[in-house]
Design a protein around this nucleic acid. Structure first.
Lengths: 235, 235
DNA sequence: TCAAAAGTGTTGAAAATACACCCATGG
DNA sequence: CCATGGGTGTATTTTCAACACTTTTGA
């Protein structure tokens, strides 16, 4: 077979920013890199792309391997191509961000590299340009979540409105009036009220809701104003 | 130097969707591919990434080479990685979209491959997955332009409000009430009225405006509602 | 003088915001 | 019985959408 004989060839990696929410703050999952260079340093979840797979497959494979989870929300973010971003050998990295229900995640017994959740404010230094990737992912998630209901991906199947509000407040590092917030989210028609209450957060208890999946898919692409004054969001 | 000896290596291309506006419809610039496979078929402007350059440099280099233009608006769109997207040899392609003032573009005398502008409705079949790239670029440009003033990149330094409205109407394939449109754009404070009029479009003539560049940069990231009912836009 | 495009204001509806009180209950 | 967090309604402001007539001037 004839090939593009003269062209350069590059190693291709994918790196995933995995977000989770513990009820208090937004967190990301990091691992200690298992090989040189920078072995033992904190890193995003990543790996090399293999010959026969596309990048979506590669990122799913790597996430499955490192978190044990399948089918999470996963979206391509950006491709980072600085020639010296990896000092060992030029490596192109395509970053993805993932949103998971932190409760579904269990430490994989087989993991040698000790993945850990870090809240964004107390993150260790990351290798290479991974810090940049995290910052871009954060901006993207803020941008997108202001207009589309992606943050539900971070919550368990049933959740309360105060939990949801905590999530939005911690993603945008702001506070929202609870009356206006609940009006806003209920107006979308995306939520179905359950009979049961979550009594863990208060004596009175807060009603559980779950997503109306049909409306969720139908409305996903519509612009929803989830955030008051969505200004200064950077794409 | 030690390297990642066992990993696969891939050819990396960049492909650029170049948008222009001729006053009537939104157009994209295509070339006839100069080498096998698919030699002579219509293609996006693309090329292979070289060993020492990052992708922004590569796309700028390729656009300079094919259009003669420097410093145009250029934004990374997505990386396409299907293993068989190029039948010759697996090639990863990172797509960029570019917005240029169509008047600044002159056919490069040195071009062997006859770039041509095509309106979106009368586009030829494109090679590989380039059609998909164009569709994604269109969705992205619609999404972004609904919230940020990127479409000014498609206009000459001075332009009239009817021209601007035509541009928005053709990007969104819709019509907008001209009273509401001019209120909307003037309310941004982004436009400075000139004394002179453009008499080419009408007997009465329409005032020229130009961008207040300071406000343009300051407000670029703010959410501006340029489009009524920005619903069904897909990111 | 008239056809063709440019320019401009008002009004009603809808959406967003600000804001305060009562409820339920476990300790 | 009271402290804590949950739940709800209203009045005001702001924004958006609908809509029609006058101006200019080259042909």
């Amino acid at each position: 077979m004839i090939k593009y004989a003269k062209e350069s060839r590059f190693i291709q990696a994918v790196d995933c920013i995995v977000f989770g929410f513990d009820g208090e703050t937004l967190k990301i999952l990091l691992i200690q890199r298992g090989f040189e260079p920078e072995k033992g340093k904190w890193s995003l979840m990543g790996g090399f792309v293999k010959a026969g797979e596309d990048f979506d497959q590669a990122s799913n494979r790597i996430l499955k391997q490192l978190t044990g989870l399948d089918g999470m929300y996963l979206e391509q973010l950006n491709t980072f191509s600085h020639p010296q971003r990896d000092p060992m050998e030029r490596t192109i990295s395509t970053a993805y961000f993932a949103l998971i229900d932190i409760n579904k995640y269990k430490i994989q017994l087989s993991d040698d590299y000790h993945p850990e959740w870090f809240s964004l404010k107390r993150m260790p230094k990351l290798i290479f340009d991974h810090q940049q990737m995290v910052e871009l992912a954060l901006r993207r998630i803020r941008y997108k979540a202001a207009l589309h209901p992606i943050l539900f991906e971070l919550l368990p199947n049933r959740f309360t409105i105060p939990q949801l509000q905590n999530l939005y407040e911690s993603v945008y590092n702001t506070t929202i009036d609870k009356r206006n917030f609940s009006k806003r989210v209920l107006a979308t028609g995306l939520l179905i009220k359950q009979e049961e209450k979550d009594k863990s957060g208060s004596k009175r208890g807060a009603y559980y809701y779950h997503l109306n999946m049909q409306k969720y898919y139908a409305k996903f692409q519509a612009f929803l104003n989830f955030i008051p004054n969505p200004t200064n969001l950077i794409f």
